[in-house]
Each structure stands twice: as C-alpha cells, then as structure tokens.
Design a protein around this nucleic acid. Structure first.
Lengths: 252, 252
DNA sequence: CGTGTTCTTGATGCCTTTCAAAAAGGGTGG
DNA sequence: CCACCCTTTTTGAAAGGCATCAAGAACACG
C-alpha cells in the first residue's frame, strides 16, 4: 500500500522537503518542528477517488494530512440521505475529531485520487506533551474547520438555492486560490452535481437547474472538470458571503 | 461586575469546590489541574439573558466556561437572517474558536441569565506549554462541539421540519440529562419558538405549526418554560438520531 | 461502440414561506 | 386588581421554492 519510501526507514526523508508546505497558504515551520512531524509520520498512502478514508463509527482512525487531491467529510441517515459536511483540500487535517473523541461520528471519502500523510492517533498525545507549538496548531486547524462548518450551516439554514451555490463556489475558489491551485481564474472542480446537492441540502434536480441558471447568468462556466469564475463580484454579491479569509495557517 | 470573590485575590477560592464539576457528566480532575485552572481563571461574570457574550468580529474575546444557564452561538447575514449554530449548556467552553483564530466569526448570546468563568485568551498558550493534559482536553471539547454542529448540519440539510424538531428536542434532553438537569422527564426549556426556528432553518410560522403537531401527537408537552418528554421512544424514532452519546467529558 | 454514470429538461405536487391578524402571556404602573 | 403595552404564540389563507417522478441527452470508459 505505501508506494513511497520503505515502511519505517530510520530517518524518513519525509516532510523536510515537503513541497506542499512551501505554498503561501502555510506558515513556516522550524526545523525542529519539521523533524518532529517527520518522526511522527508513519506512512504516505494513496487512496483512489470514491474510497473511504475514515468510515463512520470507526474507532481506530489515524490522523491524516491531506497531501494532494480533494476529499469530503459526510454523515448519513439510515435511509440513505447523506449530508456532506465540508470539503477537504491539500493541507487540511483529517481525523482529528475521530482521534480525540475515539470514534468517528462521520465518514471521510476521497473525492479525487488522493495522497495522505498518516500520523498514528496514539502519538497525538505525545504531540501535546512534547511539542506544544504543534499541539496548538492542531487545535487551531480544528477551530478553522469548525469555522468552515459554521459557514455551511449558515448557508444551508438561511440561504436559498441560488445563494448556496454561489456561496459554495466562491468559498472553494478562495481556498483553491490560497493553495495556488487557481490559474487564470479557473481551477479543478471535481464535484459532481450530486456532491453539490449533498453538500447544499438540495435535490439533484434542483441543484442542476440552479447551477445551470448561474452559468447562464455569467457567474462562472464549467467545462472539462474545471470551473472558471467569470464574474467574481456578482458571485460574491449573490453569495452574501461576509467572512474574511484566513491568513496563513499551520500545517502538520 | 464580578459579584463573587474580590477581583484577584492571591489565592482564588475558585474551582476547588466547583459544584458544577462534581456532576456526573464530567471527568475528575487532579488537584494540580484544578489549581492551574483556578490560577488561570480571571473572573466570574454574570450576563443577563439576551446580552451578547462574544460579538461577531470581536478580536479580543476571552475564553469562557459556561457556569450556569444557557447560551447559543449564532451567525447572521447582513439582511437580518440569523442562524443559531448550536446551544451551550453548563460546562461548555465558549470562545475557543475566537481565541485561537484571533477573531470571532460568530456571536454568542446568553439565552437565559448566565454565569461564566472567564479565562484570559492570552493564557491559552501557557496552557499548551504548561498543562498538556488540559490543552488536550480543550482540544477534545473543541472536537465535541464540532461533532454537535455536524449533527445540526445533517439535520438542517437532510431532515424535514418534523424530524428536525424531534431531533433538537432529544438532543437537548440528553444533554440536560447528563447534567442532572432533568427530573421526572422534564427540564427547563428556555428557547422561544423564534429560537427554535433560527436554529432549525425554518420559518417561525412553520416551526409553530410543526411544534404544535408534535405536542398533539403526544411526543412531549411544554408549559411554564419546561418541556417534558412524554414519548421518548417515538421522539427518537422520528428524529432518526443515531449518534451515540458522549461519555464523561473534560471541564476546564 | 455498447453500457453505466452524470447531466438536462419538463411536469406535477407539496412542504415551507410569506402575509396578516387575532389570541395569549408577562410585566408594569395606577 | 385592572388597564395597558409589548412579546410570544396561534391560526388561516395564498404563493412559491424545492422535491419528486420520468425520461431523454451527453459523457466516460473499457
């Protein structure tokens, strides 16, 4: 399963030269912290699109950093209704809640093919004891995720279909932008309309019609799996999105 | 403002004999931890119902533990639409997100008259350095809050009005129960129907009609500010609520 | 070039919202 | 104890946004 380096080389080449960490979305880290992170990293795994990384109810989920690709957290009812809670992009932590609470109250699924850095849940405690700075950053990332979910809750509870879609689109656009994933106002947008629907609490049909309406209105266009923002100002206005962006953030 | 002990007595009598901490919802704490918490506690404040404890955008919010009463986190759009994100009961941490992210992306309002323990945001970092155990518990509480929000998001995104109300009622019932706030299946229920509506993403009128329908169906009754669960089984079935409960949890 | 998935489109119905206004509570001052 | 005012709860009626049903079109893939 681990395609990269051998499974437990004494000194991992991991992390030291992590290209993801260089992106401007992230803080710089001290060599000491990088070393600690590297020593904690237990695996580098590839997960194909559609496969679950953490399944609901799992009680031994590890902690991950999403290294490349997209994923999403979700929760489902027994009759099949499913809610996507939030999307995960490179640098995002996965499984913190499951690690701390000992059981995953949600699932995480790879939206695209994905690479993840695996950290043993057991060592989360070590991290709090030995690297308070990193522990603080982990908590920070947890709070940031909560903040994103808050925004989704506001969206689903108060915005109509049009606003919800505009809001989700910009939110993802901005996150992608911070990761240098946007070029010429366009970025990879790997969500199917069913994903959109599940994330927005709308039916597939209504999502389709509203999404099409916004494209016709010139807000953005979508082709070959890429979305291009044509009218940022208008999209923002419709989204009625007021949260300021985050500055740089920690990365584990 | 601080009605209780004098404002910075060398050794606070605070925390040592905290009656809230004795409740079965909470972990036991070592004397050392209690001492640290006590030394960190900077005030004990009373806030009247309806007043904001943290306001949206605030960048110097302290960290609080809700000592008595109820509160709620919320987020609003500029046109007045408001979403209640989650309710806070005694023992819940408030302002962690604001402390870590440096700015509150949400507000917190006292639902009833409330008493809060105030901890300086500045000292959160000390806590990570000097008391990893407590830091871990803070992170744990943060994750638990996220988990509650996840559940709300599932509710609002996927459940219909009837299910949402049933779901919220049991969820609050269970939380109150863990705090020994339930007697004879009845507990103080300080939410107005407008609060219900704002929390559930429904209009006031429809909330009223659905709430009344459930009372007539014999799920529960409501009088003099108290709600009494008459048919727990049925309420649970309608809520289609599957999350297991939390065991004991930390308290700061 | 089949075959299954995802996207579209049209039609119908209902859950929820909106508008309006009356009824019921709660608190205060005379 | 009652008049008065403001907030919260109820009810009724009408409109609309969104869900559901159905089925065809466009893609993706082996």
């Amino acid at each position: 399963m681990p395609p990269h380096p051998p499974p437990r080389a004494p000194a991992h080449p991991w992390c030291r030269a992590c290209p993801l960490r260089q992106r401007r979305a992230f803080h710089e880290k001290s060599p000491e912290e990088v070393d600690f992170t590297a020593s904690m990293k237990m695996d580098h795994r590839r997960v194909p699109a559609g496969q679950e990384i953490i399944f609901p109810g799992q009680d031994d989920a590890e902690l991950f950093t999403l290294y490349s690709g997209w994923a999403f957290r979700f929760k489902a009812l027994s009759d099949g209704r499913r809610q996507i809670l939030n999307f995960l992009l490179p640098g995002d932590l996965m499984g913190l809640q499951a690690s701390l609470l000992s059981v995953a109250q949600h699932g995480i699924e790879a939206l695209t093919d994905v690479e993840v850095c695996v950290f043993p849940r057991k060592k989360v405690w070590d991290l709090f004891v030995r690297m308070p700075r990193l522990a603080y950053e982990v908590a920070w990332l947890g709070s940031r995720e909560e903040s994103l979910i808050d925004e989704n809750l506001l969206s689903i509870g108060q915005r109509n279909a049009t606003e919800r879609i505009a809001s989700l689109v910009i939110s993802l656009y901005r996150r992608a932008e911070a990761l240098d994933l946007v070029s010429d106002r366009s970025f990879v947008f790997p969500l199917s309309q069913q994903h959109l629907a599940d994330a927005l609490g709308l039916s597939l049909v209504h999502t389709n019609k509203t999404f099409a309406k916004l494209r016709r209105a010139g807000l953005f266009r979508f082709a070959q799996g890429r979305l291009r923002l044509e009218n940022t100002r208008l999209t923002e206005r419709i989204a009625a999105q007021y949260d300021r962006d985050f500055a740089r953030r920690p990365i584990l």
